[in-house]
Design a protein around this nucleic acid. Structure first.
Lengths: 249, 249
DNA sequence: TCTAAAATATGAATGATTTTGGAAGAGTTT
DNA sequence: AAACTCTTCCAAAATCATTCATATTTTAGA
């Protein structure tokens, strides 16, 4: 059997199963172990798969999850609930802004397809493009820690767009001090996106309430809040100041 | 058996099976190995098939992935050579523009760390950030096929920057028609980046020479060319028009 | 029509290159 | 510790490009 034919078979098998054992491929192609090992090395070299002990595995989108994985696992379920509800607010034909961040990331799967998205979170790109959503990235400095684009480039890029709705993550929510986040540069981007949007939604799990972070994004009344749980006592402080939607399991 | 008849049989067999071995064709046509080799060389010359070790494989048809494989596997090493040389041109403290594209991608590993990079290729981000390189992304519409940011947002974002050096991929290089690429939008981005750069380098394997694609980026003399191989005859046409660096193994 | 030279096609031989399968020993997993 | 897997190396086998001699066809001229 000729080399390209084996390679094609291997990749096809890998596409179906996600993981293949060397033994399987040996049977399928009637070749020796050495040959298959060589094939796998070559295909790995060309970035078509990843070798693992005993065989090979498909490699997936590299643009995702550097530090995302650790972060996500903790509040994942709550985040997903919040995100799913938020995604439900988006209607066909909408033009929306998606902030960087893991909670917002969870919205992507549930978004309608016929929309236009502008985002500063480059981790969102593979998911959005996969769904066939028209996606614009704003420019700016790429910040590794949060996978966000920030700075002057980001602010000026935003000027080109106006949004029906925007969805934000924040680190602190407080009745007096408003929405806050640790990074001044990121705060400026969020602020501007919020200003450019007809409706604004902040996605935040319950731990963010009564917290105050360094840089202010906006006052409480400038965005609706979507959260998963809220003590009555705290909820009281926000009455008549803004809209809060509590999503429960 | 006459030559055209053999050729017809070979192509028919290839159409059915996708891959054929020389031995098979020898049996089928009752011809010698030499003859079949000659046939395959000719048919390859006329772009009817691709020769592989032990036989020949269909060029395009429905097996799109395999053709992609052949393509990348064939040029990968050359691309790496070209990319490595190009990366060597970048000095500490430089501010450079990196075009989207697989050849440029290969540069990242070999770049110095203390530089500033601006790019429209979002596939480059993880690699660049991993190395701790300050990276700015320009804005724009995310194009899935080429992993590039294009359009008005991209052009306007570029205005914020000036570069010491820029590195481009192209699809065609021609002494009269200059550098060309299939997508008009991408061509505009490349053009502008080139204009904003003190020095410009085009990375292209030898197959790009004498090709002409749809959208013009710039004239030959506006960028130096880095390639892996160049026939004397073709090289002659570029004498005194631009700088060409040929990188060999 | 015939003939000789030129052009073309073929098959075999050659030495170089690539691919292949197996073996030895180091490294992993269970 | 046993079973399995991995890398590295080597030699056999297959395939490759090239050359050369032979056979066939074409062409030009008498």
């Amino acid at each position: 059997m000729l080399t390209p034919e084996r390679h094609r078979l291997i990749l096809q098998l890998l596409k179906e199963k996600g993981i293949v054992k060397i033994q399987e491929i040996m049977e399928l192609t009637c070749s020796s172990e050495s040959t298959i090992r060589r094939d796998l090395s070559q295909l790995e070299e060309q970035k078509f798969l990843k070798r693992i002990h005993g065989g090979a595995s498909r490699l997936q989108g590299k643009l995702q999850e550097p530090s995302m994985i650790e972060k996500s696992s903790k509040n994942l379920h709550e985040k997903q609930l919040i995100a799913k509800y938020a995604a439900g607010l988006v209607e066909e034909g909408d033009c929306i802004y998606l902030d960087a961040g893991s909670t917002i990331f969870e919205m992507i799967d549930s978004l309608p397809n016929d929309i236009v998205v502008v985002t500063n979170g480059f981790m969102h790109l593979p998911g959005l493009l996969n769904k066939g959503i028209s996606t614009f990235l704003i420019g700016g400095l790429a910040k590794q820690k949060t996978n966000a684009l920030i700075g002057r480039g980001a602010l000026e890029s935003l000027e080109f767009y106006r949004f029906d709705k925007c969805f934000m993550g924040v680190n602190g929510i407080h009745p007096q001090f408003g929405f806050t986040t640790p990074d001044q540069e990121e705060a400026m981007v969020k602020q501007k996106a919020l200003f450019l949007s007809r409706e604004a939604f902040v996605l935040a799990d319950s731990t963010k309430f009564s917290e105050i972070s360094f840089a202010k994004i906006a006052d409480i009344h400038e965005a609706s809040i979507i959260t998963n749980d809220l003590e009555d006592e705290i909820g009281h402080q926000y009455l008549n100041r803004t809209t809060i939607k509590v999503v429960t399991a």
